[in-house]
Amino acid sequence: MNTKEIEILIEKYFEGLTSIEEERLLKDFFASGDFPEEMKPVAAMFGYFEVEKEVKLSPDFSDEFIRQINEKRKIPFYRHRKFWYYFSGVAASIIFLISFFYENQNSPIKTKYTNEEAQLAYLQTKETLAFVSGKFNAGVKPLHQIEKITENADRISQISKFNQSINKVNNNVEKMQTGVDNIRKLSKFNIIIEQ
């Protein structure tokens, strides 16, 4: 392919009129590296496209994808989702109804106890209650500590009285301070007047 023919092809190329085959010819021409200086821009374009053609995903994309497919195989139930919703609803209702009717057919609840059983029950209950009250007393002991809190509360109230008197002293000191400041200001004023 001589330069003239190439130039014609290049013009066709930029008009969007070249075929795939012709574009391949141009590509080969530029790949040889043997082109005039002014064709550099076009050569660069073809070079770029050649590089971009080689861009690929990582080689294990396919295997990775297949692996994920196999892992996530949908459970057969999933296909007939609606069916299973209704089915389970109906089944639940049926089970509920059956157990309801079954319950009514059962033997009546035992209502009478023998005298011995009653006494035994009474004694056991008494024992249990005694046990519980003992535990209760033991549990109450730590609560006696609360009395100490009231003792300490008194002490705290004394401290607060002390605080109050300190605050009064502070206030007086502040008043003194402001008085001193005022005197200073007056003295400055005096100095200015003297000048």
């Binding site: 590296g33 082109f35 550099k40 050569a43 660069a44 770029y48």
Partner: peptide, 17 residues
């Protein structure tokens, strides 16, 4: 392995992008 001229083109090619 490309011809010298193509190596020089490197910057131009980057510009195309």
């Amino acid at each position: 392995h490309s011809p010298q001229k193509l190596i020089e083109l490197k910057e131009d090619v980057s510009n195309v992008h």
